[in-house]
Simulated scan of single mutants.
Amino acid sequence: MTEPGEHEDEAADPSGPNHANWVLAGLIVVFGAVVFGSAVRHGRADSALLFVALPVLLAAALAAIPARTSHGRVFAATTIALLLAAVVLHEGAVCVILAAPLVYAVAHGATALFHALRGAPRGYPALVVPLLLLPGLEGSGIAPRLAPEQSVEVVRVVALPADQVAGRLAAGPRPVPVRSVPLRLLGVPTPGQVAGDGLDPGDRWSFGYHGSAHGPGGHLLAEVRASEPRHVAFGFVENTSITGRWLDFERADLRWRAVDPGHTEVRIRVDYRRGLDPSWYFGPLQDALLDAGVGHLLDMMTLR
């Protein structure tokens, strides 16, 4: 059985790309060429190949392929829009990747619902359409934000006595390879430059994203606010990096204790304010990614 209207979609399907398909593909290529040229002129040729050329080619190829069903057309239009958004955002394309499952779910869910309502009484769509909008109202100003204040806590046991761990922490973080698979697969920016050391009040640590293959520049600046034996509290002074698009770091709490003479437990808690809504989707997603990011920070402070 097929849904109402699907037979009409199949019958109207052309055997190959029509004039409109080729025009759309051509416009996408022209758009991509302009953005690519701008990226190259600004000395970003390497990242332009990944963040501009590849999405544009995929979008143009998709535009040249005629869709056979309404869901096919929705998928093509949604994918083209996401790919072009990735081109505009450049290195911020990771935002598009994170949001893509939600966008696809809403687009195809709405399409299926409208198919189901084709034979319904005339007043039904007017009642159902507002319901579709409700999940997207959170944080828009019309509906309140739900639990934007979040925190993550990461605990590691390192094979070092507590006094040596204190020495490593006082030396400040140092760049180390990213061990987290999600961070690597999604291309989430990680600091390429780290400066600063010390655990005394007023000491500052700077995490720079300048020159990173995936980062648009900027830095995250943390300051020691309180220090006592085996406990340091940090505040965040400034964040001009790409992470500022997604969240606001508020404070961090670092503690360590001896497990036995040769092992030390290091615990770090980071409080932040989520910048993306809706909470039911981006809340768990940001929590998982930040958990991986804080784990990487802990590696930077304890691994040498």
Rank of each mutant, 00 (worst) to 15 (best):
G5M: 07
H7I: 14
E8P: 02
D9G: 02
A11Q: 12
G16P: 06
P17K: 03
H19N: 09
L24N: 02
A25I: 06
V35L: 14
V35M: 14
V35S: 08
S38Q: 14
V40C: 05
G43E: 01
A45W: 15
A48R: 00
L49K: 02
F51S: 11
L57Q: 00
L58S: 12
A59C: 07
A59G: 03
A59W: 02
A61D: 12
A61H: 09
L62E: 14
A64D: 11
R68H: 11
T69W: 11
V74L: 10
V74K: 05
F75S: 12
A76Q: 12
I80K: 00
A85W: 03
A86E: 08
V87G: 06
H90I: 03
I97P: 01
L102I: 06
A105E: 11
V106Y: 15
V106S: 10
A107Q: 01
G109I: 12
A110K: 03
A110N: 08
H115F: 11
A116E: 06
A116R: 15
L117R: 04
R118G: 13
A120E: 13
A126T: 09
L133D: 04
L134C: 07
G139D: 04
G141I: 06
I142A: 13
Q150W: 02
S151C: 08
V152Y: 10
A159Q: 12
P161L: 08
D163G: 03
Q164S: 11
L169K: 01
A170I: 01
G172I: 02
R174V: 15
R174T: 15
V176F: 07
V176K: 10
P177W: 07
R179T: 14
S180Q: 05
L183V: 13
L183C: 07
L183E: 09
L185Y: 14
L186G: 07
G192C: 11
V194F: 09
G196D: 07
G196E: 09
D197I: 00
D197Y: 11
G198P: 02
G198S: 01
G198T: 02
D200V: 13
D200L: 13
P201F: 06
W205K: 12
F207R: 03
G208L: 10
G208M: 10
S212T: 15
S212R: 05
H214S: 12
H219A: 15
H219V: 11
L221E: 12
A222P: 00
V224Q: 03
E228Q: 13
H231W: 04
H231C: 07
V232L: 06
E238M: 07
N239L: 03
T243G: 04
G244A: 15
D248L: 07
D248T: 13
F249M: 09
L254Y: 09
L254K: 01
R255W: 05
P261G: 08
P261Q: 04
V266A: 09
R267K: 07
R267V: 08
R269D: 05
V270M: 12
R274Y: 02
R274T: 00
L276D: 05
P278N: 09
W280G: 02
F282C: 00
G283S: 09
P284H: 00
L290M: 14
G293N: 14
G295K: 07
H296M: 06
